[in-house]
Design a protein around this nucleic acid. Structure first.
Length: 196
DNA sequence: TGTCCGATTGGT
DNA sequence: CCAATCGGACAG
């Protein structure tokens, strides 16, 4: 297996998002490898997207990395407690990203159980803030390259289209009209989705 | 400087 | 259904 190349990421979020399903997200922290198959993502499509952190051209210290070329990590804090992970996509100056919402655990399950404080496999990585905790992803990962050693995504064969489902994005009621856009993509039969 | 609020989660 | 908990965004 080989890492996805930068060229994979340097396209629009709507192209990249469904293609990330079935790929394997890996982190290596203090020699401990943890990984999971990506089963749920959402596309955030830049300054015209009411749900995006860069809506209407907000350029702030937090969103700086979104304006760089695709292939890096965008992490942010939410509710003062949790960390959420995005993959930056698009060309430089095109602030797209793909929000990673859920994984199916693969490698390092014992480490993940310890980090999450639960034995329940279904609650290890089935949610955006759960998976970051399980994989040890914190704010120090801001801007990290996805072609490096700490965090990367492994390539794998494409999935048959009928396994991929679409829906509106979750918990973006603040986005007005944008709340109905079908920008969430997930593996139809996965037991590891984030739904509650 | 002050106020408002969230791309969530876990427990009632 | 609701609280937790604090940095970011923005108004003044």
């Amino acid at each position: 297996m080989t890492k996805l190349p930068l060229s994979f990421y340097q396209r629009s979020a709507l192209q990249v998002a469904p293609e990330l399903l079935g790929k394997v997200l890996v982190t290596c922290k203090k020699g401990e490898i943890t990984s999971g198959v990506i089963v749920e993502v959402e596309a955030y499509t830049g300054e015209d997207d009411p749900a995006s952190h860069v809506y209407q051209g907000r350029k702030t210290p937090r969103t700086r990395i979104l304006y760089e070329a695709g292939g890096r990590v965008y992490v942010y804090r939410i509710y003062g407690i949790y960390t959420c992970l995005n993959v930056v996509t698009g060309e430089k100056g095109q602030p797209h990203s793909v929000f990673i919402r859920a994984l199916e655990p693969r490698e390092g399950i014992e480490v993940m159980k310890k980090r999450r404080g639960t034995e329940d496999i279904r609650r290890l990585t089935s949610g955006p803030a759960r998976l970051t905790q399980a994989l040890g992803i914190d704010m120090n990962f801001y801007g990290e390259s996805l072609t490096g050693e700490r965090i990367f995504i492994l390539d794998s064969s494409s999935l048959p289209p009928h396994e991929i489902a679409t829906s509106p994005r979750i918990n973006i009621d603040y986005a007005g009209e944008g709340r109905n856009l079908p920008y969430r993509f997930y593996l139809r039969n996965s037991p590891f989705l984030s739904r509650r």
